[in-house]
Each structure stands twice: as C-alpha cells, then as structure tokens.
Computed example of a mutant assay.
Amino acid sequence: MSAPDRHSVFRFAPSPNGLLHLGHALSALLNRQMAQSCGGRVLLRIEDIDQTRCRPELEQAIYDDLRWIGFEWEEPVRRQTEHIASYEAALRKLADRGLIYPAFMTRGEVKARVAAAEARGQVWPRDPDGAPHYPADDRARSTSERADLMKRHPRFAYRLDMARALNEISAPLVWQETGDGQTGTIPANPSQWGDVILSRSDAPSSYHLSVVVDDAVQGATHVVRGLDLYYATSVHRLLQELLGLPQPVYHHHRLVLGEDGRKLSKSEQATGLASLRQAGFSPADIRRLVGLVEPGLVQV
C-alpha cells in the first residue's frame, strides 16, 4: 500500500437526473477504494447544471444510495448550481481571447443539413459518440451578423472555435492514464469533437466546461470515471490548457453492461440501486455484482 497522501483527491460526480445504477456503484466504490489505497480524500459533487432534467428528490436519492453501498465523502458537497459564476468567469476568459462564438442552429436544422450533405455523397465529420460536427456557418459570421442574430434569436449556444483554440496550444496535448484501456501518456485529439458546446440558453455551462472548472476548484488530483468518457478527456485537456488549470491523472474504468451488452441506463429499473435494495440485495452483493472484492484496496 502506498504511504498516506492527503494531497491525493478523488471525486465522484453524479447528476440528479435519474436514479443511480450498478455502473454508478462501480465508479463510486472504485473512487473510494483507490483513495483508501493511498490515504487520499474523496469528495462528492452534484452535477445539477441542467435544471430541465435534475430534480431535488433525485439528489436525495443519490445520497441515500451512496450511504447504503458504503460510499463516504467529505462535506460540503459541491453543487454546480451554487457556483454558476465560476463557469461564467471561465467562459468570459475564452470569449476575451476570441475562442468562442454564438451558435444559432437547432438540432433539427443541423440534422437536416447533415442529411442533405450525406445524400449528395459528402462525408460529414462525426465525433467519437457519433454525433455530427456543427456546421461552419455561425463560426464564419461577422461581428455585426452575430450581434443582429443574438438580438433576434435569444436562445443560442456558445461553442468553442476548435481550430482557433488549437492554434493557441504550442506543445502537444497529452494526459496521464492509469485505467482499464490504454495506459501511460495518451495523446489528446480534441479536434475530433468539432466545435463543442460550452454554454446554452437553458444551461449556463456544458459538461465539458463545468467539469474542468469543478475539478480545478476542488483540487482533484485523480479523475476516476467510466470508459465512455475516455475520448472526452481530449476536450478537457484542451480547456485546462486554455484556462491555465491543472491536469489530474485520469483512470477510465470498465463499464457495467446490461444483458444486451450496452451501457446501463438510468431508466433500467432492474439495475437501479434503490430497486436492488428493495429486492433484498446487500451492499456486499452490490460489490460482487460490479466485480469489486471486499474490502478490496486498489493501488494507484
């Protein structure tokens, strides 16, 4: 076991937009075990920035489920809705450098544009999740055009000008990975995501922006999360460099898959922690189901 190191800070960051399932249990317990293995700290963050989907009763359910499986955390809990000013400040820093632009096209408009292009035989770039890159129209607009559209269309998003942002980076972007896939020094390739959203009219910050700000503010030295976020780390490393934020060590763990071989969804009651508790499962059963031995310490 490593010598105790209170400078090692881990965090678990669920969103209260649904009930926790076995995949969340694996991530939470793995954070706890890895922190224990080095005498580090574990923090809890509630990622409730999307107020259209997040609800107070689901936040309380998170606390109940985590206590039941034996996940302990330090107080206070960081709730994103209480720190909106910090995300707005980060967005202003990027805006002052001309690295973001207002984007007005709806999802339907983007979908139609992509469908028409592909019908003509054009290969439209897509991100690692399969979503098409945002068209270049809004990025190419003049300042006066943008100002006019912002007056006429109050609902718009701010997107990162990926090409311009990458021109600001002089050294190769990499991150340090210790997870279940490729480990070591990993080259980052944020361009594969296109011009990502950083803020929307209904949410003052996107996941990409808020997560790097939160990790820096909370002093996270280790980010332990699922492999489904592996490729998103490229965007996070870019934002960290642009904003002058420290980079943690990343550990992307295996996913808990359903019977259909797909990633678990919060809508699947059978794998929900509350449902399993009501069915008579114990915390030890949960650890067994996600493949963690008890008490099990993981070296970092």
Rank of each mutant, 00 (worst) to 15 (best):
V9C: 07
L20A: 00
H21F: 06
G23T: 07
L29E: 00
L29G: 00
L29C: 04
L30Q: 08
Q33Y: 11
S37N: 10
G39R: 05
G40M: 05
V42Q: 04
L44P: 02
L44E: 00
D50H: 08
D50L: 06
T52Q: 14
P56Q: 08
E57K: 06
Q60G: 05
Q60K: 10
D65A: 08
W68E: 00
I69R: 00
I69A: 01
I69L: 04
F71K: 01
W73C: 01
W73A: 01
E74H: 05
E74W: 08
P76I: 07
R78L: 14
Q80C: 09
Q80F: 06
T81E: 04
T81Q: 11
T81K: 10
E82T: 13
E82C: 10
H83D: 06
I84N: 02
I84H: 04
Y87P: 00
E88C: 12
L91V: 01
L94T: 01
R97A: 11
G98P: 05
L99E: 01
L99V: 06
A103D: 07
A103I: 06
T106M: 09
T106S: 10
G108D: 12
A112N: 12
V114S: 05
V114P: 01
A115P: 13
A116D: 15
A119K: 10
A119W: 07
Q122M: 13
P128A: 07
D129E: 09
Y134E: 04
D137M: 13
D138A: 00
R141L: 08
S142F: 11
S142K: 12
S144N: 15
E145I: 11
E145L: 12
R146L: 12
A147E: 15
D148I: 13
R155E: 13
F156V: 03
Y158C: 06
R159V: 06
L160W: 01
L160R: 00
A163E: 15
A163H: 14
L166T: 07
N167E: 12
E168S: 07
P172C: 02
Q176G: 12
E177C: 05
G179W: 00
G181E: 13
G184W: 03
G184T: 09
Q192N: 14
Q192C: 15
V196R: 02
S199C: 15
D202A: 08
D202V: 09
D202H: 09
A203E: 10
A203T: 12
A203C: 14
A203G: 11
S206Q: 00
Y207R: 04
L209N: 02
S210G: 07
V211A: 03
V212N: 00
V213Q: 01
A216H: 03
A216E: 03
V217T: 11
H222S: 03
H222V: 01
G226F: 06
L227K: 13
L227C: 13
A232V: 09
T233P: 03
S234L: 10
L242E: 02
P246S: 10
P248T: 05
H251G: 05
H252S: 03
H253G: 00
L255G: 03
L273R: 02
A274W: 01
S275H: 10
Q278R: 15
S282V: 10
V290Y: 08
E294P: 14
P295K: 05
G296N: 14
